[in-house]
Design a protein around this nucleic acid. Structure first.
Lengths: 342, 342
DNA sequence: CTGTTAGCGCTTTCAT
DNA sequence: ATGAAAGCGCTAACAG
């Protein structure tokens, strides 16, 4: 079949142990043998077999990544950050698309376990009980990115969603907006849904502003749900001047629905997004948005995995990364926006 | 360490061979032994080691995927199609982000070789000479998706870019447009760049229409380049009523630039995209676009790999998938659009 | 039906 | 400095 360490050894007239040492940059051989071996490796076109290496023991140099959804700007930006760091550290990524399905995720975890991955990154979804158990039964470390588990204490890297929602809301308020519509994620979602809703409500309250319930709606972070949510909000015919959608895709959805209804953003209403994916950049108008540093989060997640493998203890396990407001064109001061149903 | 087939065998009082047979659903054991073994597997929480399996010989059940860019709707849609099919067939995907860098791709190929992947999918980029050599030296099959190599005869699955560009152009012409701007990919790119340009020009010519060179520009398929290309086209101040951009991202770029200049799409000009990614759906207005069936292509690519592994011969190696025009809101009939610089 | 055994390609003691 | 040999966990003959 393929050419192995044995072939090299025979050809170079040394033992496989020596070849192994040379390939792995250890010590215990003369300069001349080294050269000779290197030369035959070159000649034969030898490539070490990572599977065999993995079997011997230590590590497979691969990390499994579970994403609820692959297509979409959010996941891909995260993934890009992970890939970059992983590659630099000599790791490869197995990517799995769970589609937010319990059974798929379980299956993925099973496969990753069989494939002996060195770590697992669980991205941006809620963890079910049985998934948590599987994760616990894994020999490799697991970290969460852009999510966390309240019941299973795995390390995570994410922004503080509550605070980020506060910041976003406050920004709108400081721009003079008082009647603000809100499109959140599911309140059932204790990680990305509920806290953002709480941040919004809390900040409104702190500023003695009322949140009009018919001006709130809850979607699934995706474009279509943003579009529909906004249409529902419109139906209420309550006055408002700004809308805060907690994902750029949903914000793009309100832009789209607004366009269909002949509502101008930002002249009639302002809209604030969340994530800072390319959707925000490409939107018309470009979205002012609450940025999550997705690539950085991806990077941190694999770094966390790596340090977990060596250190096991004493590293700061959780990592809260900073959110940041990116100003583009979709939010205007209250005084400059006409508002709806006033 | 972890619990192995040996532990199961000892615990169940059988040989490892029997356990192996049972686990792999082969035959050669009594019903009672089977039950007993299955029970101890359950008790011990045994998980087969895929690495060891891989070493023994046959296959690793993993496929390597090389993408020039992970973030972006194009790649992620393709990836989603591949993942779905791969998972159904029991395969996992190693994804690599080449960033269109020669050396990164080489490195990726090297790693994938070491990891003994069962196949390689090379997506949507040009193949350099040395990459081609590496690919040839691999023991596993390789297929191209949404691209191909003129110099290295690997199987591919893609749309006929020339024909698709013809179809798109013809669509515009049938809508009555005669002065059409064109934003292509690099003419240096013999796969996705040149053929679309040729399709455009050929169709114009067939309809006795002149292509005004200052109304053509060439980008890199991405948003920014679409935006800049369109600005350049505007500088020419030549009359036109429609623009054909050969990627949705670039089309979104023209939408964005148009918006900045106060040009209305589709009232002033029509714009036609290419790909049918979510960017087309989210755009304002939603883009009429030349669709590539990306998920289907991803699916076909892994199916191709799989059949290549068994059959080796006699299967139709290349696969041209059908393009299709998706009508949304960005193209209007000539008579209904004002045009620019007329 | 079931067990024994020989590897798969490599790393790693332990000798020399 | 170098080699021999023992596995890593599993599959696949080959014997019974």
């Amino acid at each position: 079949m393929s050419i192995t360490i044995k072939d090299v050894a025979r050809q170079a007239g040394v033992s496989i142990a020596t070849v192994s040492r040379i390939v792995n940059g250890q010590k215990g051989y003369g300069e001349k043998t080294k050269e000779r071996v290197l030369k035959t490796i070159e000649e034969l076109g030898y490539t070490p077999n990572a599977i065999a290496r993995g079997l011997v023991g230590r590590e497979t140099k691969s990390i499994g990544v579970l994403l609820p959804k692959l297509s979409g700007l959010f996941a891909s930006k995260l993934l890009e950050g992970m890939e970059e760091t992983a590659r630099n550290e000599g790791y490869s990524l197995f990517v799995c698309h769970t589609d937010s399905k319990e059974d798929r995720a379980i299956q993925d975890l099973q496969v990753l376990k069989e494939k002996q991955v060195d770590g697992i990154i669980y991205a941006s979804d809620q963890l079910s009980e049985s998934q948590g158990q599987m994760l616990n039964s894994m020999v490799c470390p697991a970290v969460f990115v852009s999510t966390q588990s309240l019941t299973h204490p795995f390390p995570y890297v994410k922004v503080d969603d509550y605070q980020a929602a506060c910041t976003g809301t406050r920004y709108l308020i400081e721009k003079g907006h008082k009647q603000i519509a809100f499109i959140g994620g599911s309140l059932e979602d204790p990680i990305a849904g509920k806290p953002r809703d709480e941040g919004f409500r809390r900040t409104m309250k702190d500023h003695h502003l009322k949140v009009e319930e018919s001006l709130t709606a809850y979607g699934d972070f995706r474009f279509q749900s943003g579009k529909e949510s906004f249409k529902n909000i419109l139906k209420a015919e309550k006055p408002f001047t700004a809308v805060f959608a907690v994902s750029d895709e949903m914000a793009a959805g309100v832009l789209s629905a607004a366009y269909e209804q002949g509502i101008s953003v930002p002249d009639d209403i302002s809209v604030l997004g969340y994530d800072n994916t390319m959707a925000a950049e490409m939107a018309i108008p470009p979205l002012t948005t609450m940025a999550q540093p997705l690539e950085e989060m991806g990077q941190k997640a694999v770094e966390l995995i790596l340090s977990l493998r060596e250190n096991k203890e004493n590293i700061n396990k959780n990592e809260i990364v900073k959110h940041r407001l990116i100003e583009r064109k979709s939010v205007l001061e209250r005084s400059k926006t006409k508002g709806l149903f006033l």
